[in-house]
Nucleic acid binder design. Sequence first.
DNA 1: CCGCATCCTGCATGATACTG
DNA 2: CAGTATCATGCAGGATGCGG
Lengths: 119, 119
Amino acid sequence: MSRICQDGYDDDCIKENREVYGITYAQNVLSGRWKYLILWFLKPKERRYNEIKNFLGGISQGSLTKQLRELETDGLINRKIYPEVPPRVEYSLTSKGEALIPIIDLMEEFGKKFGENLD
Amino acid sequence: MSRICQDGYDDDCIKENREVYGITYAQNVLSGRWKYLILWFLKPKERRYNEIKNFLGGISQGSLTKQLRELETDGLINRKIYPEVPPRVEYSLTSKGEALIPIIDLMEEFGKKFGENLD
DNA sequence: CCGCATCCTGCATGATACTG
DNA sequence: CAGTATCATGCAGGATGCGG
């Protein structure tokens, strides 16, 4: 999803969205098909690139790398490179990323309670 | 954002995503650029179509109608038509929609605490 | 093993015109 | 006022091939 209110907005949008700025910000850093699941998967412990990829199943390498870079840029995850052969890279939550976990947990509860089948 | 795991998934994706099914479901019903803000705006009381449109500022009529229909189809909002001239339509949260409010509130808090400027 | 570069496609959204 | 219909478009994400 593209970021909200960067262009084409009018004064009402500016005024009103300042009130709900936090919602828009959270939505922006979480925009992306796989980010909720990635954060959820990193919740218990750090994970390697291929662990995440196998967990997500359907994601392409290009997309996974992109989502991980965005999460890193937004300060939600750490990326640690181990100079080994073959290379090893481990991802983990930052404190900012951990602050999103309650949101994700609530979403999980909501879906368990209200979710029907997706098809 | 398109719905996750409807096609092209492999067995891992099925197996693993069942664990996090709720997250995916919540993400699906909330997919759309304006839905969080619409739900937040409906939180205090029911609102008319044009109230929502003015609040959001930048949205087009076509997009707003589409998002409202999706929210209605997913059972998050009610749509009440008053047979007047000119016509009046009021939208309000269902109990299912209200169940999402804690999530939105947490996102607002998160953004207030961690958000930088969007540009 | 963990990427990056490139190309391609679908879909969400916007723009615009029209209507009961 | 609250839509519907149609068309245009930008961008997220997938596919594929190559690289340290």
